[in-house]
Amino acid sequence: MNNLANIPESYLRNLDSQIKQILVSFGSETEDNVECMNHFELGYLGTDFGIKIKNKKIFISDIINALEDMEELPQEVKEYYPNMTDQEWQTSTRLSTLIFCWFEASLKKYYLKQLESANYKNKEKPINNRLIFSNT
């Protein structure tokens, strides 16, 4: 089942491009958002699939997970929310990691569904958002 290495590069790039379009549409085509899209890509490291820093072997979910080692509320956040506790900060970072991992797992499931699809091999099918986020 875990056979991501068989996915054609062209399909991966197509999915990458469409995910970025979805994200920019969800946010806005601002300078920050567009710049962000230029610095990540979908890809796999070994058998693990996810959203990674472009041209580097680092998943963004790993970076978000590493942020959890900052257990004390950072000063920059404290300036916005002076009454926030360290526990509430830790809740925020834990949830961020989980949601990001969930999103990646959903993308992977979508990918694998495409692999199983008989029509998939010779076509670059449009991305169906409902498929990506269902049945996780």
Partner: peptide, 8 residues
């Protein structure tokens, strides 16, 4: 392991 909890 990222799903389990704090990385440390």
């Amino acid at each position: 392991p990222r799903r389990l909890g704090k990385p440390k």
